[in-house]
Amino acid sequence: MDQSIYYHTFQVSSKDCTKHKTIKLPNLLDHMQEAAWSNAIALGFSTIDLMENNITWVMNRMRTEIHRLPNHREEIRVETWPAAMDKYFTKRDFRVWGDHEELLVEATSNWLVMDISTRKLIAIPEYIKEAKFVVDRNNVYPISGKINYDSNLTTQSRNIKVSWFDIDINDHVNNIKYYQWILDSLSGDYLENHRLKKIDITFKHEGKYGDEFESKSYLDEAENCWFHTLDHKQSGVSHIVA
């Protein structure tokens, strides 16, 4: 297999950056997903390919560990590959490399297959499993455990309404938007004075155009980390936890 299909390179542009000249996390994640898209196309199992059979990929969970965010004009190499597969899940891993082969970011993600007509999750079809495109490239440690949000501890909240521009090719909210919404729940002063080291997010339900959500969060002093949930305003159902 051509080794180049596992890599996506780019230079951090000014539009990607904060005023501190480092890339915004949602923008970096967007580049990582473009790498995943390119890899899936090369393997013949992209979202577009699956849509021909009335199915599509949906992300269920992603854990990202950040050693350092890339700087403006830094040349970045995103490495991504399908790392495991079982009856329902396929695991995709990422590493982001900076100048001088410095490891900047490691991430792992779990993906499911959804029937487009019914919007129901299904087992991974046999023809996908038979392709045997899973590889071991020093795989990232898998995700374990559940994220639990205690609504009684909520200290911050904000309201969100899904706009037309939040919707992606799968006709639901693109997962990058969720990252932005939960980080926006923190104050600007807090973001200015703290560095994000790790984010673990579970995607539980689709968000659709016009949906209204309440983004809620609290700081767990014992764990020294923030917990987040995005609750549907009408149903009260949590769509993501982090």
Rank of each mutant, 00 (worst) to 15 (best):
S109W: 04
N152Q: 15
L186Q: 10
L230V: 14
P142T: 06
D220H: 03
Y127S: 13
V162E: 06
V173H: 08
T154S: 12
N138K: 13
N193W: 02
N159C: 11
V113K: 10
D115A: 09
W226L: 01
H205K: 15
N175I: 03
I122Y: 05
S215F: 00
T202G: 13
N174Y: 07
I147Y: 00
K161Y: 00
V173N: 09
F165P: 04
T108R: 02
H228N: 09
E206K: 02
H100E: 10
L153F: 08
G210I: 12
W97N: 05
V134W: 09
F133D: 01
A107K: 10
A107C: 04
R195F: 09
E102P: 04
E223R: 12
E221I: 05
N139G: 09
K197W: 00
E212Y: 01
N138W: 01
K208H: 13
E221H: 02
V173F: 11
L191D: 06
P125V: 10
W181F: 08
L196R: 08
R137N: 10
Y141M: 12
L196I: 13
D150I: 00
G188L: 15
N148K: 13
D200P: 11
H172G: 08
E214T: 14
S185G: 09
R195A: 06
D166V: 07
N138A: 09
D93S: 14
I169M: 13
D99H: 12
N224G: 03
V96D: 01
T229S: 15
I160V: 14
I116D: 03
E212N: 12
N170D: 06
S117D: 14
D200S: 07
T108L: 04
S163W: 11
Y127K: 08
F213R: 08
D189K: 14
G207Y: 11
R95C: 04
A123N: 14
I143Y: 01
L196Q: 05
D189L: 10
I167A: 03
Y141F: 11
S215C: 15
N152A: 14
S157G: 11
Y218G: 03
P142Y: 08
K87N: 13
K146G: 04
D93N: 15
Y88Q: 12
K208E: 09
A222Y: 02
V135G: 09
L191T: 04
T155N: 01
E223V: 02
F227M: 01
P142A: 01
G145K: 00
Y179P: 02
L186S: 03
N170K: 07
S185A: 15
T154K: 02
